[in-house]
Design a protein around this nucleic acid. Sequence first.
DNA 1: TAAAGCAGTGAATCACGATTCATTTCATGG
DNA 2: CCATGAAATGAATCGTGATTCACTGCTTTA
Lengths: 208, 208
Amino acid sequence: MAYQATAKTEEQRLSMRQRILDAAQRRVLSGGFAAVSMGAVAADAGVATGSLYRHFQNKAELCVEVFRNASQREVDEVRRVSQEAGDATERLINTVRNFAGRAMRGRHLAYALIAEPLDPALESERLEFRRAYAGLFRTLLEQGIAGGDFAAMDTEIAATAIVGLMAETLVGPLAPSSRSLDSSQQQHLSDEICRFALRAVGSKRTSI
Amino acid sequence: MAYQATAKTEEQRLSMRQRILDAAQRRVLSGGFAAVSMGAVAADAGVATGSLYRHFQNKAELCVEVFRNASQREVDEVRRVSQEAGDATERLINTVRNFAGRAMRGRHLAYALIAEPLDPALESERLEFRRAYAGLFRTLLEQGIAGGDFAAMDTEIAATAIVGLMAETLVGPLAPSSRSLDSSQQQHLSDEICRFALRAVGSKRTSI
DNA sequence: TAAAGCAGTGAATCACGATTCATTTCATGG
DNA sequence: CCATGAAATGAATCGTGATTCACTGCTTTA
């Protein structure tokens, strides 16, 4: 007599939720969070506007989840690279290269995560995202300093600085208006960022 | 017969325009561009909402003018410092210190100019603002390299990187939520940024 | 001082997108 | 197959803040 959720309805529920998230993410990928409106997401997902509110309290909650998913993926991949074998300098180089390559390849996403003007509700997510990256660099710096590869420094500040210098150099050209770099320019930019960072951390190796 | 503007009316006109700009700027100073609404600015300036439109086409135009005025003032002052006497390293140190001190002292303004999520119409102003700073650093870098004080590098990328690392280290703590640093923390942050930057440009002097 | 027309006013309008909710459709357990 | 109630729908509503404009009040020129 009483209605009760079953595996089937639960599955449908999750599938719909996922379709909504996917649609929202596609919008972020192509046009940033500015392109995310409840109506448009609903249309893309092939559901009614009101249905979005069955799965997400409000727009901010939906956006936060999209931001988290995307930034988590990015950070996880960069973390993986940062923990691969090699001495501190090599790992720093690989990490910077990966971060840069990822940003230059996925321009729209990088812009949305790093620089796009966001609803204040998302700003704290962005802060966390940047802190997560800074945390990865901080670990690298500490290991490098302990091993005598890098100069002594305040690793929190330095790690933050590395995130900032990458964001600025990569997102300046990432600004919506400016066009993308060709592959040799990308290579040059990535190399210059690496050299700058290596000098900044006092690495013994400065040629790459 | 025909009406014609006179010195008196023109003066009144300019004075009203200025009062509006001042009111808008006060709002930016205290609450960022988010606190700028046409109604509030009009109320602060003691004029009617509609009067704003006699002096500015629309809100974006008003905001752009406020942004320009403020950023111009900031850049001019940092430029002045960057051109004072001293070798390249000293000037870089002074410039970085000035930039940092200014950002830490005028937190709200710095946040508004550097990091606050803005109407897209203002984003290009911000880009120009950051480019102006980068230009100052670029000049310093070129002089330093020519004089053998700094390592060879792509000065455009390096200058952009310096702007970015300062923005990130200074605006992280500037984010609206986090509280301000005490004076010894400010000193430490400023010093660490200087050291980081000096290493990054390959300056011979690394102690400050 | 009077006619002419610019400047100032602020309530009404408009735009835009988030959110709601009465209604319809679907799934469940008996 | 039916009664029950959850899920989905999407048109209507709401909120916010920019923008307009009919009206009032000043300045100017003759």
